[in-house]
Simulated assay, not measured.
Amino acid sequence: MRTASWTDSVSVLDRVTAVFDAFGEDDEGLGVSELARRANLPKSTVSRIAADLVAQRFLDRDGELLYLGVRLFELGQTVPEPRRLRRLALPVMRELRDVTAQTVQLAVLDGAHLVVVAVLRVPSAVETSTRVGGRDPAHATALGKSILAFSPPETVTRFASGGLTRQTPHTIGEPAALLRELADVRRRGVATEHEECTVGVAAAAGALLVAGEAPSAAIGVTGPVDVLFPDRVAPAVRAAAVTLSRLLAADRAR
């Protein structure tokens, strides 16, 4: 817990970090007052920091609400407008959360890593390391595997040849094994994960597929291995991915 004495002694960088950390539990926009409360900083300080971060595109402003900004998630050609993607996704994420009673994630591919851009939790969810801005090796996550499964073959070959680091004893470490797994994901339409990224955590995810485009984002659910059974939630995850893919395609068409 950050105390009053902490606010008097920390550097500017610490204060900026505190502002970013305030978004970890809420991806639907925060006002300056709420940001100040969560960061345990004076409202005037947060207001000044937020203005500078908006100017540099590290935060986005929509009326009185502030969002994690586009610049934090600029990933080349992956997702040109992360905030728009998050807004399109939120209703679908809420429905998936309510149906599965599990934490829902939205993530984009950044090179060999998956970056989480939105998280919706259930009140009763067991806390995990899932957070907005979190990065994990794509081959160790259901989200990443769901995207890689539908990526161009040359992309997958290049990815696999770059070396597959092991996050846990269950992480896929051999390129041939990864290719077999991706083929299975293409067949089922959903990728699953069982303690491959974090011990004790399971997940299921589906890529967002738009005709004529390589996939760059995915939606999925995650939770404790003794609570979340990927095969059981796979139909709901698949339906959510299809729905969000259609919304994204329609938005692009406009």
Rank of each mutant, 00 (worst) to 15 (best):
M1R: 14
M1H: 14
W6M: 05
T7N: 05
D14P: 03
R15S: 13
A18L: 00
V19L: 11
V19A: 07
D21L: 12
A22H: 05
E25Q: 06
D27W: 08
G29L: 09
G31R: 07
S33M: 13
E34A: 04
L41F: 02
A51R: 02
L53C: 03
A55D: 09
Q56N: 15
R57N: 08
F58V: 03
D62F: 09
Y67F: 15
G69D: 05
P82M: 11
R86V: 15
R87K: 12
R87C: 10
L88W: 05
P91I: 08
R97T: 04
D98G: 07
A101L: 13
A101H: 08
Q105K: 05
A107G: 12
D110I: 14
V122R: 03
V126D: 14
E127F: 11
S129A: 10
R131H: 10
V132N: 05
H139G: 02
A140T: 07
A140S: 06
A140Q: 01
A140F: 02
K145Y: 08
K145A: 10
S146M: 00
I147M: 11
L148S: 04
F150K: 00
P152L: 01
E154C: 06
R158F: 11
A160Y: 09
S161V: 13
G162C: 12
G162P: 07
G163L: 05
Q167A: 13
Q167G: 10
Q167S: 13
T168V: 07
L178I: 00
E181R: 03
D184K: 15
V185M: 09
R187F: 15
R187E: 15
V190H: 00
E193G: 00
E193H: 01
E195M: 06
E195H: 00
T198C: 06
T198V: 15
V201H: 02
A203K: 00
A211P: 05
A211Q: 11
E213N: 14
G220L: 06
V221E: 12
G223T: 15
D226I: 12
D226F: 10
L228T: 07
R232E: 15
A236D: 08
A239W: 05
A240P: 02
A241C: 08
A249C: 06
D251Y: 10
R252Y: 05
